[in-house]
């Protein structure tokens, strides 16, 4: 640790000394050593340092593009170390929206995807962008809102009824508005309710789940959230309550996809398959089921791989 800090100091010192020493002590008649050294030393040194830490120890690197919910909930931090250790792989997690994750797959910038956008996933597979898709797990969405419940949705059985009530009463609703999986899910519910959400009451935030929950809390409005993020923010003092849950249309299935290796010679299809085989295996599925169960009194994710279902 202290070595690292001193490295930083050296950098700063290097920059300053470049100026103060190289520029201010007038150098002698330009000979090869006296002039070339102070200006050229840093660039040759620097890139070398840039590679040492990241590239040396890890022989196998795999890029996993996923939705922010799997990272933000802590699930990946909980699962991945086992995988990395077992197979000597360094999994690089890029947490983005489902839309960008799929685009990364199309561009060949990721080896494997873990996302929740069933329709878009199907399109992706049909277009030949992916070579293998497996169900992994699901979690669920909840409709949350202020305790006063101005739209009177508490106790409604379906998400569609709840959305209709919110639109009719023109109660504030904060939408992700970022084409994420959650946003897609929300749009589907509006579609099913045959409603076009427009008006002052409908706020399109264009932000991540946590920010949207905080906004809804500040505005005393409703929103659609995944359960994991909601519970995490509840612990931070969020005042919104769960109003509607359990509807089958609120289920949120996660799939894992191996990107077509034809996209780029750098794609590690072998590692992607290894990852898929591992995450759908029974022991890992069991681990998913117990994730945070004790702490929260409920599971955040429910395993759903074919192997798991057959075993049940």
């Amino acid at each position: 640790m202290f070595q690292k800090m001193s490295f930083y100091k050296i950098l700063v010192a290097l920059i300053l000394s470049m100026l103060l020493v190289a520029a201010c002590a007038p150098t002698a008649t330009p000979t090869a050593e006296s002039v070339a050294v102070p200006t050229q030393a840093p660039p040759t040194k620097a890139p070398k340092l840039a590679f040492t830490n990241t590239e040396i120890q890890q022989p196998q690197e795999m890029i996993l593009a996923t939705t922010s919910s799997t990272q933000d909930s802590g699930l990946l931090d909980y699962l991945l170390p086992d995988f990395d250790k077992e197979f000597n792989i360094k999994t690089k997690v890029i947490a983005v929206g489902s839309g960008q994750a799929l685009q990364m797959g199309k561009d060949g910038d990721a080896d494997v995807l873990l996302i929740h956008s069933p329709a878009a996933e199907k399109e992706f597979m049909d277009a030949g962008d992916g070579v293998r898709r497996e169900d992994v797990m699901y979690n669920d969405f909840v409709i949350v809102g202020p305790a006063e419940d101005p739209a009177k949705i508490t106790g409604l059985k379906t998400s569609v009824d709840a959305f209709k009530a919110i639109a009719e009463s023109e109660s504030k609703f904060v939408s992700r508005g970022d084409d994420s999986g959650t946003h897609v899910k929300e749009k589907n519910i509006w579609k099913k309710a045959e409603l076009e959400p427009v008006g002052d009451w409908y706020v399109s935030a264009g932000q991540n789940m946590g920010a949207v929950l905080t906004m809804a809390d500040e505005l005393q409005g409703y929103t659609l959230s995944d359960r994991a993020t909601y519970l995490a923010f509840l612990q931070q003092g969020l005042s919104l309550k769960i109003m509607v849950e359990g509807d089958s249309s609120l289920l949120n299935p996660y799939g894992v996809i191996a990107v077509n290796p034809a996209k780029s010679p750098k794609i590690r299809n072998d590692l992607a398959n290894q990852f898929i085989d591992w995450i759908i295996s029974i022991p890992v599925q069991e681990k998913i089921q117990v994730f945070k169960k004790e702490e929260l009194g409920q599971s955040l994710f429910y395993p759903s791989s074919k192997l798991w279902q057959e075993a049940k």
Binding site: F7, Y8, L11, V12, P42, P43, A46, L49, A50
Partner: peptide
């Protein structure tokens, strides 16, 4: 610090 430091050295050069 390392990333921005290296970037700064290159920018300075």
């Amino acid at each position: 610090g390392r990333i921005s430091g290296i970037a700064l050295v290159i920018s300075a050069v």
